[in-house]
């Protein structure tokens, strides 16, 4: 079982290269070269976000290295989703800076610009296009020139089709490709959304609670997928499922009340007195 997943992932990654090249050849909105010469690809510095006086993020500082797989945990309301909102441009920070590489100031970019620059996002609540087929969902997510007039005449290239097929094999939705996405189960929607993330070929993947609603087996597969993606991509995973986090984590950040409480390996974090206090022993130690 594991072996087959490995193979699939391998193909996905190779396919991705191909797609990227093809996209470049097609004169598309290629992400500006992300300057990661200093190590980190994402810089979140002193970010504060408040909603009517309530600080959802409080002077949060966080760096994600290029190619890193980072897990972010924290109790409900810690600000994890808000942090992703800030990175993807959905929420503007009151103060602080968010940079993609050395040069791109994300606080000055719109959502679609950020996405085009190479930051992909999976929502906490799976969101797909319910009235499109699984295939079309992937087609729309596919990295391409996404301007209006171009899409009036755009057609999928053979290469892109192949790429979608590959992803469909990876996420196990191949048999359901013609089904309306709205008819998928919760877990299947999660997979579809992950697939949509893959065809976008982003540099950074922000994944909010990817395994909610998945079986144990599927969780394993997801973990596998995410670890393989790391390296070529930077992956930021928010999860409540500690077991899952432990199985994939290299570096864990604990958020609490909008700022970083602790950072380190899973073991270090779990032994941190403050973290234990916050979780009240809730984590499976």
């Amino acid at each position: 079982m594991n072996g087959s997943v490995f193979k699939r992932v391998g193909r996905v990654l190779r396919g991705q290269r191909g797609a990227t090249n093809a996209a470049e050849g097609m004169h598309t909105a290629v992400p500006n070269e992300v300057d990661t010469t200093h190590g980190p690809i994402l810089y979140v510095e002193n970010v504060t976000v408040s909603f009517d006086g309530f600080k959802a993020l409080n002077n949060l500082t966080l760096y994600i290295d290029d190619g890193e797989l980072r897990c972010i945990i924290g109790p409900n309301g810690a600000g994890k989703t808000t942090m992703m909102d800030v990175i993807t441009g959905k929420t503007r920070p009151d103060t602080g800076q968010v940079f993609f590489g050395q040069t791109m100031d994300l606080t000055r970019m719109t959502e679609y610009q950020i996405a085009a620059a190479g930051i992909g996002r999976k929502f906490q609540k799976p969101t797909v296009f319910p009235e499109h087929s699984v295939f079309t969902n992937l087609e729309l997510a596919m990295r391409a020139d996404k301007r209006v007039w171009t899409s009036l005449t755009a057609r999928l290239s053979g290469e892109q089709r192949y790429r979608i097929d590959e992803v469909l094999m990876t996420n196990g939705l191949n048999d359901l490709r013609q089904l309306y996405a709205g008819q998928l189960s919760h877990g299947q929607k999660q997979w579809l959304e992950i697939g949509m993330l893959l065809v976008q070929s982003p540099r950074v993947l922000l994944v909010d609670e990817p395994v909610a609603g998945m079986t144990h087996q599927e969780m394993d597969q997801t973990g596998e997928l995410l670890t393989r993606l790391a390296g070529a991509h930077s992956v930021v995973v928010v999860e409540h499922d500690m077991e899952f986090v432990r199985s994939i984590a290299r570096k864990v950040t604990v958020l609490h009340e909008g700022s970083v409480l602790a950072e380190g390996s899973m073991d270090e974090v779990q032994n941190d007195a403050r973290v234990i206090e916050v979780y009240l022993g809730g984590a499976p130690c």
Partner: peptide, 30 residues
Amino acid sequence: VVCSKLGRVVVAVRDAEDRARFIGYKTESY
């Protein structure tokens, strides 16, 4: 128009505008 990719994006925007935005579509232009 509705059979083109533009048409499909438009339907996508109708059903999940945020999702469309986060996969890189300038939905207001559509």
